[in-house]
Design a protein around this nucleic acid. Structure first.
Lengths: 219, 219
DNA sequence: ACAAATCGGTTGTATTTACAACAGAAAGAG
DNA sequence: CTCTTTCTGTTGTAAATACAACCGATTTGT
């Protein structure tokens, strides 16, 4: 697990904590490393979760499939991001979504109780991690609201514009790559892939956007 | 402000804290009481927010109107619930939504910095409030994900079923009242009111549900 | 290099939705 | 009580979407 410490150091959870301290905390937080291959489930809907996970390699999707096989991608987890902070509260129930590895992935699990109850050994940086966790969950909250704002658009075109505008703002550029292929983008925006593809091409023909594979540009 | 202490005592934020302690903390947290009449905005999109608010009377909607006048209600705040926890992080930017009083409302604002930095006066219950805040934001996170799961349904009917099922589960009963009128429910689910009304009546005629005003039953 | 699988675009049709307009019922104001 | 406003249901039409089916291009595995 040692080899992932430099990656952990750059995560939001361990922001402001040195590599030596992280090494020391791995025991304190009962860290466990798990490897998943592409297509494997990390967690399944209905499971009980008492750990927080930090992705140190690969890519995950937080998603849910309904009775009719419609998949919706709630969120995407990239290297350095975490998942499970929303389930730290005592009576938070079971997991509402699946967590799927969409690439070969490496995940480190941390014991939640060890994080939110300050350890008697008083590792000096524990309180920093707690505050980091707080800010992280707060940020994820804002991102969920943001997703809700473009999910609440009525038409596919409006959803696309809202999403692409947001990505452009996030990248500080009118050109950017999105982390989805067409099917995944459709699942993320909860629309039909072919209808979306159709709309994208119309928007391109109208001179609103340009794109090639995952690279998009706003005009 | 003293008269609201019994209400504050029953809120999630002050869970486990006695009335005397709450009284003492009002200063420590620089509490400010504000009154709003129905239809008045508590906060507007774009504002900078460095306070957490707790609703002690009335009802609020977290909402957003787009260019074309389509309103979407992101969330509803009832007495005892709070808003603004997602903006406590230092670089969380400005408010993405409006906060509207849909009834005459009483709101108490608390200084965020005072909450997340433990005060030197060491008020004994401060750490409890911090943990409560943590659990609250974590719970709100789960609720947002839940809303995303039924917002991601394709048809109005599916959205209605997902929403009503959730409410039934929450009330532990097949009969329950919803906190919205038709227009508000449509705004909450991001669908057209008349189309939704139509769909509701179809579902009633098919024997799936029954309703009268805000009272719904699943059959 | 070849076969298989994945991906993205296109088209047509049936379904669903948005929008506007209207009417009766209920609630609220004076 | 009466007038006004709000709320809810209804209808018709134009627009948008879902779904299925297909094809060519690209990628992947062997």
């Amino acid at each position: 697990m040692k080899e992932f410490i430099p990656i952990l150091k750059r995560t939001q959870l361990f922001s402001g904590v040195g590599e030596e301290e992280i090494g020391a905390m791995l025991n304190c937080l009962q860290a466990k490393l798990c490897i998943y291959i592409k297509g494997e489930y990390v967690l399944r809907q209905g499971e009980h979760l008492d750990k927080i996970l930090v992705l140190v390699g690969g890519k995950l999707h937080i998603q849910r499939d309904d009775y009719w096989g419609n998949r919706s991608i709630i969120n995407m987890i990239s290297v350095g991001e975490m998942f499970g902070e929303a389930y730290v509260a005592p009576e938070s129930g079971t997991l509402m979504n699946d967590v799927l590895a969409v690439e070969d992935s490496a995940v480190i699990f941390f014991d939640v109780k060890r994080i939110i109850t300050v350890c008697s050994a008083a590792c000096r940086f524990h309180s920093i991690v707690v505050q980091n966790l707080f800010f992280a969950i707060s940020e994820k909250n804002r991102k969920l609201v943001q997703k809700l704002t473009f999910m609440s658009k009525r038409t596919t075109r409006e959803k696309l514009i809202a999403y692409l505008s947001e990505e452009a703002k996030r990248h500080n550029s009118n050109e950017f790559c999105i982390p989805f292929n067409r099917q995944q983008l459709a699942d993320f925006l909860s629309v039909d892939r072919s209808a979306m593809s159709n709309e994208l091409c119309k928007m391109r023909d109208e001179g609103l956007i340009c794109f090639e594979k995952n690279r998009f540009g706003l005009l």
